[in-house]
Design a protein around this nucleic acid. Structure first.
Length: 490
RNA sequence: GCCCCCAUCGUCUAGUGGCCCAGGACACCGCCCUUUCAAGGCGGCGGCGGGGAUUCGAAUUCCCCUGGGGGCACCA
């Protein structure tokens, strides 16, 4: 292998497929992706499905779908393949079996016949006596006959790693610095279950070595596992990757972000009308910063500027408000055609599905210019424009305001009359005529337009009135005004 | 109980001994613009958890305390 290849950056994102892609996972994936992209490296997606009872194919699909949506594509992984595959751990069991066999043969691992119940009792005792909760090594030096007796009793065997009884293992972490762990605190941990399935730490060590992973960028919660993986890597004769542990993401109560804080999966944010640009940018800044000033970054800029050196050490609270602001920013920044496509994609699952553009109704593209600057999420498009497609349904507050407005009937009939007499129903013509009508009634424009807004939309908040009228068209506009007038007459 | 990590405005953060009586962004509060709501512009409020120590000088270094979090599984 050439020096060039030796130095190649190879990072991986290794989710366990037990649910949707959580924003914390998404951030980890993003940092790995950015790191690889910025250094001409390779980004590997590896599915860690050794927990048979919790892993599902559906979750694998969800995670893949979310990552694709975010634009975090991988060079090697499921559905893509690669020279170090397969990329689902349960398809790599031969590899683990071989590695475990080698450790066993070299005396670096041993069979343990203790039952789960015995181990639980041992842990309880240790806790009660205030001792570190670690395996005491009962089976560490079992003789051949003792082992035979255990098997004769019908006891099942797991394989444990023979952890050095003394000494320290130091993790040289790129974000946390050097962290020391006492080997004695680590204990002889299990590497292969009685079922023959490897445990997390073992599979990770074997795979990180086999896949030539150069940098492990992952969540903080894995820091205490790292010394075990380091020891395993050493026993396997493999070089250790560089580690970088990211602080976790918190909810507003400073507890780790979880479902009870509301939306936490990429899928949920997508369904609420967030765009990938905003989510990526926001997540990038949650735990990383470029300088004292800059908040807005394109993916390209992130790739160019991301570095482990500028990843922070403090856990960060997820702030929905800021994400929302950022989302609005990216929506405003899009060109009309691009935004139209995003909205059309988004609309597929909403109550407006199929409506825009049908039967002479306005299309999404017609409405984008009237709504773009008001939207914070794609979902806002629905709230802002549904009255163009659906029968007017009055919001309670809007209706009350309309009824309370003593001038409303006069305004509405004047407006209807004015609109009826127009030659053209373009925005300018409508505006000129209505401004003149407001003048003639000696009303401020806002005062004049508000009853009209409510009559046309049933809402207090809508796109600009002149644009709305023009899109609605003369016939529909006048009929809605007449309907409101009829209602007020009762 | 044991091991480990962390601590600057409400939130995300800049800050690596003097450039900081701490800068930016979101949120909040005013004002301006305005057909509603947003957006935008201008201005404001607001912070170095506590205690020691080192130093001419500490947000920045060290120690202790307090507070948060992670781990100690045949989960990952």
């Amino acid at each position: 292998m050439s020096q060039q290849e030796n130095d190649a950056v190879r990072v991986r994102f290794a989710p366990s497929p037990t649910g949707h892609l959580h924003v914390g996972g998404a951030r980890t994936a993003l940092y790995n992706w950015l790191f690889a992209r910025g250094r001409a490296g390779r980004f590997v997606l590896r599915i860690e499905d050794t927990d048979l009872s919790r892993s599902t194919d559906e979750a694998v699909r969800q995670i893949i779908s979310s990552m694709r949506w975010l634009g975090l594509d991988w060079n090697e992984g499921p559905e893509t393949g690669g020279e170090f595959g397969p990329y689902r751990q349960m398809e790599r069991t031969e590899l683990y079996r071989g590695a475990a066999g080698r450790l066993l043969a070299e005396g670096k691992a041993y069979h343990c016949y203790c039952t789960p119940a015995e181990l639980e009792a041992e842990r309880a005792r240790a806790r009660a006596e205030g001792r570190p909760v670690v395996y005491q090594g009962r089976c560490r030096e079992l003789s051949v006959t003792e082992a035979q007796e255990c098997r004769a009793e019908g006891r099942e065997a797991v394989i444990r790693f023979r952890t050095p009884a003394a000494g320290k293992t130091v993790v040289r972490d790129r974000v946390k610095g050097d962290v020391e762990f006492d080997n004695a605190q680590l204990g002889d941990f299990i590497i292969v279950r009685s079922s023959g399935v490897p445990t997390y730490n073992f599979a990770v060590a074997v795979d990180d070595a086999a896949m030539r992973i150069s940098h492990v960028i992952r969540g903080d919660d894995h820091l205490p596992n790292t010394p075990r993986q380091l020891l395993l890597l050493e026993a396997l004769g493999a070089a250790a990757p560089v580690y970088a542990h990211l602080p976790l993401i918190l909810g507003s109560d400073r507890a780790p972000l979880s479902k009870r804080h509301g939306d936490v999966s990429v899928e949920e944010f997508r369904a609420r009308g967030f765009v990938r640009e905003a989510l990526n940018n926001y997540l990038a800044l949650l735990g990383w910063s470029y300088d004292a000033e800059t908040t807005l970054f394109s993916m390209d800029e992130l790739v160019r500027n991301f570095s482990l050196e500028r990843v922070g050490v403090t856990a960060a609270v997820f702030d929905n408000e800021k994400l929302l602001w950022m989302n609005g920013h990216y929506i405003r920044e899009m060109d009309a055609a691009g935004l139209t496509v995003r909205i059309e994609e988004f609309l597929e699952d909403t109550r407006l599905a199929g409506l825009p553009g049908e039967d002479g109704r306005p299309s999404v593209g017609d409405l984008v210019p009237l709504t773009q600057e008001k939207m914070k999420t794609l979902a806002d498009f629905v709230e802002l424009t549904d009255f163009f497609f659906l029968p007017v349904s009055f919001e309670e507050k809007a209706l009350a305001k309309l009824k309370k407005d003593g001038a409303a009937r006069q305004i509405l009939s004047t407006a209807a009359e004015t609109l009826r007499q127009l030659d053209s129903f373009g925005i300018e013509a409508v505006e000129t005529a209505l401004r003149a009508a407001a003048d003639s009634m000696e009303l401020k424009l806002g005062k004049f337009l508000q009853p009209l807004r409510i009559a046309l939309s049933g809402k207090l908040v809508t796109p600009g009135m002149f644009e709305t009228l023009a899109v609605l068209g003369r016939e529909e506009s006048i009929s809605r005004i007449d309907a409101a007038l009829g209602m007020l007459a009762q």
